[in-house]
Write a protein that binds this DNA or RNA. Structure first.
Ligand SMILES: [Mn+2]
Ligand SMILES: [Mn+2]
Ligand SMILES: [Mn+2]
Ligand SMILES: [Mn+2]
Lengths: 219, 219
DNA sequence: TATTTTTTTTAGATTTGCCTAAATTATAAT
DNA sequence: ATTATAATTTAGGCAAATCTAAAAAAAATA
């Protein structure tokens, strides 16, 4: 079956939301997609017709097996293109998400497979998110935000928020990148800021805002 | 201003047709775009509103300066992507047109400039068609089809039809590629086939169908 | 020049994807 | 258990992009 760009965006949004929540509500979707709840209801009815999700009026929606497979195909394309944009075209990684939102809808399967090969079969995109393979399998990376990390719990930076612009600059300045080992030494309730230890350098302070956009895997 | 995918396809089709014909008719467009004449009329009215073309009911349509610039931007993207697909992803060049029809609509100007740089600022796409520069300038290659070439008139193969599938295979077999010097030695009126001389090899026969899909620049 | 044919436009519908406003259902609070 | 609030759906509409059928205009032919 064939899906329009609008449909693909809904499928991807449902997939993302159901990772956290299993059952996705109309309001959550309308917030995610910047549309009105009434428009979401419309689209859910259409996608139910296409048998890729279970939608129970008033009780939310969930992708079925077919729907998940389609979602992972879109995510695969999105992340491969992000990798291409950063590695080959030398974009900063805060600029690529918007462009990949368009490229992900180019539908040639041959293109995706050749792109993957050209890129050397990367395992993760520039934000640290895993790239599904051609049959839709993907490592389930269960990282948390640095903001949620417990004090004195060492962790490895495993990703960053792919939507926030200006992030590369501040992370470069603070010498943090994917793979960096970090540990929270102190947490200030006043403003949510944290002091972290990196390697053997003096403590650095991160704002709550910043810590929420960095993802880590506890060791 | 911003243009939809449908609008961009119309703009490109008008541009292509007005190269041959200056004034483009509704029927020509409907044939080119595989739509009904009534749909063309509708769209021409919308594009006239946007002030990128001169449309006189019953008398055809012509892009104005703004329209031409937009068209050349789309053509630039199309041809850069075709070059990428062949040179980097190793597609055969009869496969890339369809994919480039989608990629050309990805709208980031930054993407186009970086892609151009990444590819080494190519001058022509895999079919021999010139790639407009970022300000819309393009060499006007005036090649003719090999079928139209006069006998005993040496010429260089300068391009191929970008839409015909199976062409790379037969050209490889006959050892013809862009840059090859050719000369028609004999022409058969019976079936339109021609005998051509390449380098110092024995004459080869090309069908009318094939000769019409190869473009040459007479020396 | 008058008539026929072809081209083009208009009128009226349809589908997709969105909207606002009103009605309905579910959930939370008294 | 009612009542109030919040979430969701329905109803009705709109714009883009397409279509078919009918009308109108231009071009070709007699
Ligand atoms: Mn992204
Ligand atoms: Mn990403
Ligand atoms: Mn092409
Ligand atoms: Mn081409």
């Amino acid at each position: 079956m064939n899906f329009s760009i609008a449909e693909e965006n809904y499928i991807k949004a449902i997939w993302r939301l159901q990772q956290a929540d299993s059952n996705v509500t109309t309001n959550e979707l309308s917030a995610e997609l910047q549309t009105k709840p009434a428009s979401v209801t419309d689209m859910l009815k259409r996608l139910k017709e296409k048998k890729i999700l279970n939608y129970e009026p008033y009780y939310g929606v969930k992708l079925n097996a077919d729907g998940k497979k389609i979602a992972l195909g879109i995510i695969r394309r999105h992340r491969l293109w992000e990798y291409f944009l950063v590695e080959k075209l030398k974009f900063e990684w805060d600029a690529v998400h918007v462009i990949a939102e368009e490229l992900e809808h180019v539908s040639s399967p041959e293109l995706v497979e050749r792109l993957d090969h050209f890129l050397g079969f990367p395992k993760a995109d520039p934000h640290g998110d895993p790239i599904p393979d051609s049959s839709g399998r993907m490592e389930t990376s269960k990282h948390i935000s640095l903001h949620q990390l417990k004090e004195q719990q060492p962790a490895i930076v495993s990703g960053v928020n792919d939507q926030s612009s200006g992030l590369p600059e501040i992370l470069r300045q603070k010498k943090i990148s994917i793979g960096t080992k970090v540990e929270i030494k102190q947490r200030f309730l006043f403003d949510g800021s944290i002091e972290i230890k990196i390697r053997n350098q003096p403590l650095i302070t991160l704002s709550e805002q910043l810590a929420k956009n960095i993802y880590v895997t506890p060791l």
